[in-house]
Nucleic acid binder design. Structure first.
Lengths: 196, 196
DNA sequence: CCTTGTTCTGAACGCTCGTTCAGTTAATCT
DNA sequence: AGATTAACTGAACGAGCGTTCAGAACAAGG
């Protein structure tokens, strides 16, 4: 029996991606089998290959989709005047975006090494684009005298790591709301780049 | 033929651990096979089981050894007077310790989910002990009025993430020495916890 | 109602996995 | 020299892996 009622490409396709994202985030790409994904989707393993040419392409597609959305959403954000305001916008955007998609963020940082080299290069370029946006803000602010940052490249790495770290401990429904978390992080970021 | 000349437990044992650490860091626990470890050590796969009861115990032993060393080394560090001096000591210690053992740090953050639950609990408790040391410094400094940190728990997470992030970009022989990196990070940390 | 095309099943392919173990080799002990 | 033991080999175990594919089931179009 195939094609049971209500089972279409429009439903199975997204379901495959959602399930793969969840399982990859939970157990890691290498530890998750195609059969396991199929079981949770509710199909036989062969059916998965209607939606991806292979397992590697499935991982890449998830990461690529995530990075595309990250870059597009960031570029659609309002761009305030002044380095300080722009830095604040970046901090709040990054925290909000990350906390809204914990699984995608997780595999974006953990599964890079499981990408084939040519796929890795694509994702890495996108990530550098995004991190470059932060460094540009720091550089402008330093030039204008708004910040005191001796090494903007290094500072951008430090701040990105700090902000992305939110995902390791934040749990929805905890004692702090996303906005409260963003307030506290922005306070630390603001001071860390100011004249000391 | 077994027991070729110069091949003893004293040599093979450490070699197994070193090789496993390197491969786990490079490809991930789930993606590395016992046969691959054996090949790089230069023995048949069966010989590995003279040094570990199974693959999981090998991972746990590496992580446990690393955490033991981290805690012991930190406790052996001189403990300066005053919160500000103690915070600086922590920052410099953390960066130095991490950059000296990039592979062990890497698997300590990446392979936690591949630990069996009872093993995970052990490592997690040790990690909390270490992170608690930072929070205690922040709490004392806040109480004494040396720092301005509204939420010491959250600030400790933020700082740990920032400091640990050094490992993702630092490469020995780059344009900055470890001490120069530590100077810059300490500058940012110092300002981020100060009155703004 | 019959054809066409999409979606899925069920089974199979060759391969690798972690782990076990009887037997072999070589160093050590008596 | 002979016995003992630690270290390792070589082969095997059952299980699971990613991937392929012929054919079945169903929806849609004429």
């Amino acid at each position: 029996m195939a094609r049971t009622q209500g089972s279409h490409s429009d439903i199975t396709g997204p379901k495959v991606r959602e399930t793969a994202l969840r399982l990859f985030a939970q157990h890691g790409y290498a530890a998750v089998s195609m059969r396991q994904i199929a079981r949770e989707v509710g199909v036989q393993v062969g059916a998965l290959y209607n939606y991806t040419p292979d397992k590697q392409a499935l991982l890449f597609s998830l990461l690529k989709g995530h990075m595309d959305e990250l870059l597009a959403t960031w570029e659609a954000e309002p761009r305030p005047e002044g380095p300080r305001e722009r830095l604040e916008a970046f901090v709040r955007f990054h925290i909000r975006f990350n906390l809204d998609r914990p699984q995608a963020i997780f595999i974006s940082y953990m599964e890079l090494r499981n990408l084939a080299p040519e796929n890795f290069a694509v994702i890495e370029a996108q990530r550098k684009l995004y991190e470059g946006a932060l460094e540009a803000i720091l550089r402008d602010g330093q030039a204008e005298g708004a910040f005191s940052v001796p090494d903007t490249r290094l500072a951008s790495y430090a701040l990105i790591a700090m902000l992305t770290g939110v995902n390791t401990w934040y749990r929805a429904g905890g004692r702090l709301s996303i906005d409260e978390v963003a307030d506290i992080y922005w306070d630390m970021v603001r001071k860390s780049v100011s004249a000391g």
